[in-house]
Computed example of a mutant assay.
Amino acid sequence: MARQLSLVTAPAPGPAVLTDVWPPLRAALDGRAPLAVVPADAGSAARARAVLRPEVPLEDGADLVVLTSGSTGDGRGVLLSAAALQASATATLDRLGGPGGWVLALPVSAVAGLQVLVRSALADQAPAVLAPGEALADALGRAPGDRRYTALVPTQLRRFLAAEPDALRAFDAVLVGGAATDPALLARARDAGVPVVTTYGMSETAGGCVYDGVPLDGVGVRAGEHGIELSGPQLAAGYRLDPSATAEVFVDGWFRTRDAGALGSDGLLTVHGRLDDVVVTGGVNVAPAAVEAALREHPAVADAVVLGRPDAEWGARVVAAVVPSPGGAPDLAVLRSWVTARLGAPAAPKELHVVDAVPVLHTGKPDRRAVARLIGGA
């Protein structure tokens, strides 16, 4: 029998998540009612409906459809089975030391937030939902169970580390993913006693599947000419109504991530960034994530996004959009010297734009297209 996909609008962070999303998600995990949770803002919601087309019967084997961020395109609907979601959640809990109570601090329209709900469902314990403006310590106090976990994006880790380090230290594990995490930030968090676990994964892998460089049980990793490739029971079945895109990246049981990376002699995976994000300037490959990390270490910079722009002399030039730290006054010459000393001259930005904030996608990742539009007329 053909099944229809139900779209549920993600509510604002807070208790409504437990009334609007938690029950239908549990029904989807039981195989009773396929579900997609879509962003609430009008533009993203319209895009979600156009991509997901709920009027068309759902493909076999899918119980949850997750809309990708669309950071480099219009996004796709990722087809995930209940078995894939549960395999991911089970492997995560096994790695962390067993089920526990979760604090949900991420949007549930993205896979990282949804996985907090899935892991909570496996433990049969509703998570504590962090409300806007609420202290992390207050949400932590509502988390059920003897073990307590949360998942954050790097920006949240940076903010909570400055404002509530004691609350972060009280967790049994703080998963950090969704974007590259600056090594300096990780070092500060670990030096402060925060049990940080870095995660690597995406919607197509039902969330994080490599923790601190080590694959979860059942996950295969290889890195070569196609970049990082992943396999295992957590893989998606493909993309909603897009068999050609599915065939392009799901090949012989492996998912081609389009990320560059390497496996060390110790078996640890190092992720270098997107294959298509590399800026080739003067014949030298520059990874934007590395430049962003260096810029964020400067005391005048609170946040940064790095892009490539066409350049008649260099082929492409490195462009930085930075958010100043309180009282900071970012200066191009100063930041160029700072980056050169750490990464070499080719990585130093040739163009600097100061912005009030970095636009983000519904997943919490930087919206690079929005940043490009923001600085385009400058």
Score class of each variant (00 low, 15 high):
residue 286 V to D: 11
residue 350 K to Q: 13
residue 375 I to L: 05
residue 258 R to D: 05
residue 206 A to K: 04
residue 149 Y to H: 08
residue 297 E to L: 14
residue 374 L to M: 14
residue 244 S to N: 05
residue 20 D to F: 13
residue 180 A to T: 12
residue 31 G to Y: 00
residue 175 L to V: 09
residue 19 T to Y: 07
residue 26 R to I: 01
residue 107 P to S: 02
residue 349 P to G: 10
residue 241 L to G: 02
residue 50 A to Y: 04
residue 274 R to P: 04
residue 308 G to S: 09
residue 267 G to W: 03
residue 302 A to H: 09
residue 202 M to V: 04
residue 295 L to Y: 07
residue 84 A to G: 06
residue 242 D to R: 08
residue 128 A to Y: 04
residue 268 L to T: 12
residue 371 V to T: 10
residue 18 L to M: 03
residue 330 P to Y: 06
residue 180 A to P: 11
residue 309 R to M: 06
residue 257 T to N: 00
residue 160 F to V: 10
residue 242 D to E: 05
residue 240 R to V: 00
residue 139 A to F: 03
residue 133 G to Q: 07
residue 314 W to A: 13
residue 212 D to H: 11
residue 30 D to T: 06
residue 229 E to F: 04
residue 193 G to V: 11
residue 250 F to L: 10
residue 4 Q to K: 15
residue 92 T to G: 12
residue 20 D to E: 14
residue 38 V to H: 01
residue 338 W to H: 15
residue 206 A to T: 01
residue 341 A to K: 15
residue 15 P to W: 03
residue 354 V to F: 13
residue 175 L to D: 04
residue 89 A to C: 09
residue 45 A to Q: 12
residue 337 S to F: 15
residue 248 E to Q: 12
residue 247 A to P: 08
residue 123 A to K: 03
residue 235 L to M: 03
residue 305 V to L: 02
residue 125 Q to C: 09
residue 298 H to G: 13
residue 223 A to M: 11
residue 21 V to D: 06
residue 17 V to S: 06
residue 80 L to P: 00
residue 323 V to F: 11
residue 289 A to F: 07
residue 358 V to K: 09
residue 129 V to D: 02
residue 345 A to N: 14
residue 106 L to F: 08
residue 356 D to P: 15
residue 184 A to H: 14
residue 344 G to E: 14
residue 25 L to M: 01
residue 263 L to D: 13
residue 352 L to N: 07
residue 350 K to P: 14
residue 211 Y to C: 06
residue 267 G to A: 03
residue 305 V to F: 01
residue 150 T to Y: 12
residue 343 L to G: 09
residue 143 A to D: 05
residue 33 A to V: 02
residue 283 G to D: 12
residue 327 G to T: 04
residue 75 G to N: 05
residue 343 L to R: 13
residue 291 V to S: 06
residue 27 A to L: 09
residue 189 A to I: 13
residue 286 V to G: 10
residue 293 A to S: 14
residue 136 L to V: 07
residue 293 A to C: 14
residue 96 L to N: 06
residue 260 A to S: 13
residue 187 A to R: 15
residue 128 A to P: 08
residue 162 A to K: 14
residue 92 T to H: 04
residue 282 G to Y: 05
residue 146 D to I: 14
residue 16 A to W: 03
residue 106 L to Q: 07
residue 42 A to D: 14
residue 320 A to E: 05
residue 321 A to C: 12
residue 139 A to G: 12
residue 366 P to Y: 02
residue 369 R to T: 14
residue 92 T to E: 13
residue 123 A to L: 01
residue 116 V to W: 00
residue 230 L to C: 05
residue 245 A to F: 00
residue 302 A to W: 09
residue 114 L to A: 04
residue 46 A to Y: 03
residue 258 R to T: 02
residue 196 V to R: 07
residue 102 W to D: 05
residue 67 L to G: 01
residue 277 D to H: 10
residue 170 A to K: 09
residue 217 D to E: 09
residue 128 A to H: 03
residue 68 T to P: 06
residue 285 N to T: 15
residue 161 L to R: 12
residue 277 D to V: 05
residue 117 L to R: 03
